[in-house]
Design a protein around this nucleic acid. Structure first.
Lengths: 208, 208
DNA sequence: GTCTATATTTCGATAGAC
DNA sequence: GTCTATCGAAATATAGAC
């Protein structure tokens, strides 16, 4: 086997020789180019609907080349999952203990909104491939690897918080989510700045 | 070929001999039992992740038996899609013309909320199999068969309505959706009545 | 690192007996 | 209406040359 095992994505195993010091926005490595194409394709056609042959073709290489960089198709999905996890871990650590009040939730959501705007594609991938991701999650069960969605559900199920407030917490998240990911291209002509502001105002009206 | 072609579901082709007059809640036909199992399985594991072998096994029959009732796996998905469409067509016809104001949207969403509570499973199936459904939709392109999601997007893209209001329309829908479908079993202990009321109040705060 | 094969598996779908 | 048996296609994954 080759080095095609780590799905961290953050810690590049031992790629060619990318100078760590360079400041130029160096061309993405093949590994990253694979991930970028996979991200698009898995989102467009779904994880199961998109074949590695298609990924390879759109990239101009062969399937075998992909298998040099990744151990399996699942490994590619996992690497993309970890990409999102990188961004989410800050906000995640904040809901680690104590009941989450409406106010805390509001601040949290504000952070998440920013990340969602910046990482739209990754969130969309997750929304549209929940089944595949759950299966993957079941198979590895990464021990202490606490998932974003898990924590989200746990907060919403916390009996120390009024149901009324928890429904509003869920609702405010849904409001953000729908505006960004369930509206097709209805707000394509709206800038991220304006869209973000409008959504934030909506959230405030929910959480008071 | 057998009668396994119609994916209307509403108009049963020519099943055994179910007396149309009977008042007893007669046992579901095999066709419907297949649909029910498929609904569960397609939602749990995704349309692509669930095989017909699994559907057959859980039902206690063989694959071939399924093919007597349905022309293809896609046909089963289409039949489930039509089930939802049946419920949605009333609300659908209401957003057929003229700009949708916040007030109209509020009334519309109120109806939809009721249907969502009653048809939870069907909505969840659609949420988790968007890719497969889009592919199916592309292949048949049922002419005038206007899809729910299409109309939803069109309303949100209507330039005659303020962006601010459209974001709130999208957001209010998302609030409903998240409370019912993205919260895991956080509100499992809450009755549909109470949950519905709490959600309605949240929606009102968004739409003012 | 990328290529040309090819192995392996799984699934959707069909034929034909009962 | 349901069964057994099988076909054909497509996809993941591997072996080994360059």
């Amino acid at each position: 086997m080759t080095q095609a095992t780590s799905h961290t994505g953050a810690v590049k195993a031992h790629q060619p020789a990318e100078p760590d010091v360079g400041e130029a926005p160096e061309a993405p490595s093949t590994r990253e180019r694979i991930l970028n194409v996979a991200l698009d394709l898995f989102t467009e056609k779904g994880f199961d609907g998109a074949s590695l042959r298609e990924v390879a073709e759109r990239l101009g290489v062969t399937k075998a080349a992909i298998y040099y960089h990744f151990a399996s198709k699942d490994d590619i999905l996992m690497a993309l999952h970890m990409r999102l996890h990188e961004f989410g871990k800050d906000a995640l650590s904040q809901m680690t203990e104590g009941p989450v009040t409406l106010e805390r939730w509001g601040k949290l959501l504000d952070e998440i909104l920013g990340q969602m705007l910046a990482q739209r594609k990754l969130f969309l991938l997750h929304e549209r491939n929940q089944a595949a991701l759950e299966k993957l999650h079941r198979e590895v069960h990464d021990a202490e690897h606490e998932d974003i969605q898990d924590k989200f559900h746990r907060v919403l199920a916390d009996p120390r918080v009024l149901v009324r407030d928890r429904v509003r917490m869920a609702g405010s998240f849904g409001a953000v989510f729908a505006a960004l990911f369930m509206s097709g291209d209805a707000f394509e002509g709206t800038s991220n700045q304006e869209l973000g502001d409008l959504v934030r105002q909506t959230v405030r009206d929910i959480l008071v």
